[in-house]
Simulated assay, not measured.
Amino acid sequence: MRIGVHPNNLHLRLASLWPGAFAGLDPVFVPYGEGRDTASLLESGAIHIGGTGSTPPIEADARGLHVEYVAASAPRPANGAIFVRAGSDIGSVADLAGRRISLIDGSFHTYLLARSLEGEGLALGDVERIEIGTQDSLTELLEGRVDAWVAMSPRLEKAIGRDDLRLLVRCGAAIPNRSLFWSLARVGLSPAEIAAIASELARIGGEIATDQVRAAHLLAEHDRSGTDAEAWERVVRSRDFSVVPIDAAVLAEQQEEADTLFRHGHFDRAVAISRLLEATK
């Protein structure tokens, strides 16, 4: 089993470091750069399963790749936020109209921004989305090249409490922000393999929850960004690592996101996850 691991999926990142993880599936952990690459790697056969935020599998379905959902994390309301400079004249989400916003477009950042704007009668087209790329978003914000920044762990935890930043909105106020573990129909995972993957993700999540210090030290030991164990422990303690098999409620959330992003013009056509909903009934 070729399991994709990118830096922003902490569950699979920890699984790749956790002794005995996925032992029954003869695992090969395949590192890659970011969650938006998951669909292409699945399509090419480089990996058989990956984990991302909620948006990349919808992007894959929009490309006609026929996503196979495997499991879902618990909601992670603390894992994303929108920041502005402390002295900014942006006092609320409504003030983002016409502003430059740094984010990883096509990730859950896009959905968080869309739902936040929608609550104020705005749409994605009312702001200028600036792709982060290789830029340091915090520096871009503080030096005024962007007006707001969509942040996530572990940089989020470092940003909270800074006196030169102001928190505008947290994830939990707008979206569930789950991790989704998924494949493509063409990969051909069997029902037994899907069940085994979901079960192993849940088992590892339970062990992480009972040994958070160990998890933090593993992350710090293999972290090239310089985030230390103390910072990683705050990240680990802030989230629920429980994982459940895919069910109708999670698929309904995915459909709501797909409909929202279509409504905002992010997709050229509607994305029907309802075909999967029918299979759960």
Score class of each variant (00 low, 15 high):
Asp95Ser: 11
Leu180Phe: 07
Glu120Gln: 15
Leu117Met: 06
Pro56His: 08
Gly87Ile: 09
Glu128Val: 12
Ala39Thr: 13
Arg129Val: 14
Ser179Asp: 08
Pro77Asn: 06
Phe108Cys: 10
Ala258Thr: 04
Thr38Lys: 11
Pro176Ser: 08
Ile90Val: 15
Asp89Val: 07
Arg269Gln: 10
Pro56Cys: 06
Glu140Asp: 14
Arg269Asp: 05
Pro7Phe: 09
Asp105Arg: 15
Glu207Ala: 09
Asp95Tyr: 03
Phe83Thr: 10
Glu131Arg: 12
Ile197Ala: 03
Leu96Lys: 09
Ser153Ala: 15
Gly265Ile: 01
Ala71Val: 08
Gly4Ala: 07
Leu168Cys: 03
Asp61Ala: 13
His109Pro: 08
Glu143Lys: 11
Pro154Val: 03
Ala159Phe: 14
Ala39Lys: 15
Ile82Lys: 06
Phe241Glu: 00
Asn79Val: 03
Ala39Val: 12
Ser73Val: 04
Arg36Trp: 12
Trp232Leu: 10
Gly98Ala: 03
Arg234Thr: 07
Gly172Asp: 04
Glu193Lys: 07
Asp105Gly: 12
Gly33Ala: 12
Ala185Asp: 15
Gln135Asp: 14
Leu141Ala: 11
Ala231Trp: 06
Ser190Asp: 04
Glu233Asn: 12
Leu25Arg: 08
Ala97Cys: 10
Gly121Ala: 05
Gln255Trp: 01
Glu256Met: 05
Val244Tyr: 06
Ile208Asn: 01
Cys171Gly: 13
Val169His: 14
Leu10Glu: 03
Arg162Ile: 13
Val67Phe: 10
Lys281Gly: 14
Glu120Asn: 14
Ile3Cys: 02
Arg115Phe: 00
Val235Pro: 04
His6Ser: 08
Glu193Thr: 10
Gly35His: 03
Ala148Trp: 08
Ala229Ile: 05
Gly80Lys: 06
His6Val: 02
Glu207Arg: 11
Gly51Arg: 10
Leu141Gln: 12
Arg263Tyr: 06
Arg239Asp: 00
Arg85Leu: 01
Ala15Met: 14
Glu233Gln: 15
Gly45Met: 11
Arg85Tyr: 10
Leu10Ala: 10
Ser238Trp: 04
Ile130Pro: 01
Ser92Arg: 13
Ala215Ser: 11
Leu113Glu: 00
Val127Cys: 03
Gly188Ser: 02
Glu143His: 12
Thr134Gln: 13
Gly121Asp: 00
Gly206Gln: 07
Gly64Lys: 04
Pro31Ile: 07
Ala114Pro: 09
Ala202Val: 09
Glu120Leu: 02
His217Asn: 12
Leu184Glu: 06
Arg237Ile: 06
Leu168His: 03
Gly161Gln: 10
Leu261Ser: 03
Arg234Val: 12
Leu189Met: 08
Ser40Asn: 15
Ala72Pro: 01
Asp37Ala: 14
Leu14Asn: 09
His66Arg: 15
Ile246Thr: 11
Leu277Ser: 02
Ala231Arg: 09
Gly80Asn: 06
Leu201Pro: 12
Gly188Asn: 01
